[in-house]
Design a protein around this nucleic acid. Structure first.
Lengths: 153, 153
DNA sequence: TTTATATCCGACTGATTTGGTCTTACTCTA
DNA sequence: TAGAGTAAGACCAAATCAGTCGGATATAAA
């Protein structure tokens, strides 16, 4: 398939929640989990990963919880996704070091890499602050040559 | 994760191969499979799916094989991918009918749907004909507001 | 200092998906 | 008619993923 893992989903939801409660107290994992009907331990695990990548700060102790480490306008969706799922690579051929077992034979590696970069750009353009239902801007990207093709999906 | 299935990969490779041998005879599944070091039966399966979606035409008999049903400039990568893997949906929340189990609580459904559409646009812009190593155009898409953010990946 | 609360971390399990194979039937060409 | 090839579905094994559990650690309050 071609989709985010549920953990990445939860990560985005959590980040959005923290952004909304930025001014207030730190939010505990169970508090966020309860609000969206997600297992508390699973949400904790997701938040731990985000903390390890310094996207959120964890505060220990009885009044502890999580808070955003940066302003929500400074955090992209891509950062959250890679923090949880690792690097975003659309094909097995396109790895970080750029090789697959059929490097010489595979004829579409380079063009797919470019497609991959385009998708990275889309994801890095979207910030946590923009993840609201009432985003004013309807289109996030404008495609070159879009008039040639209609979106078939 | 966030990547294409190998079958979709193989589908793109096969389509590209058929595009390159367009003028010549029809290519059998085993011929393509051998060239790229892929199992023949697996490649056959992939090609069968493509044939069912009318992306390629199958010719039976001893001189049979597969041929492109349309010009390579008229077939987008998105068509090939959806033919093999089904509809492209980046999150579990974003389904074709548009619901998940936490519809009311989930606060990022609509923005993610827009991100999804952007990715669909990217994939639908790329054609089989463009899947060559020596594509003249370096950038496939141009992003609105890209100057605000650098690609972190 | 003790106790309660909360995060942290790694190991573990069960279910789902996916890559890949095999078998059988069908279709066309020579 | 025989051979080459496709068509289609069942089938298996490996990898991945969602979600859980338990213990360790750090903080705050009594």
């Amino acid at each position: 398939m071609f989709k985010l893992s549920k953990k990445a989903d939860y990560g985005l939801i959590a980040m959005k929640h923290l952004a909304n409660h930025r001014q207030q107290h730190a939010c505990s994992a169970s508090e966020i989990a309860e609000e969206y009907g997600i297992s508390a331990t699973l949400m904790a695990k997701v938040l731990q990963k985000l903390a390890r990548q310094s996207l959120v700060t964890a505060k220990h102790g009885s009044t502890g919880g999580y808070q955003l480490a940066k302003a929500p306008e400074k955090v992209s969706a891509l950062e959250v996704i890679t923090a949880i799922d690792g690097p975003v690579l659309i094909t097995s051929c396109v790895t970080t070091h750029g090789n697959c077992d059929a490097t010489e034979r595979c004829s579409i590696k380079e063009p797919l890499r470019r497609v991959n970069e385009s998708i990275l750009s889309v994801l890095s353009t979207v910030t946590i602050a923009q993840l609201t239902e009432e985003t004013p801007e309807p289109a996030l990207v404008e495609l070159k040559g879009m008039e040639r093709l209609a979106v078939t999906g």
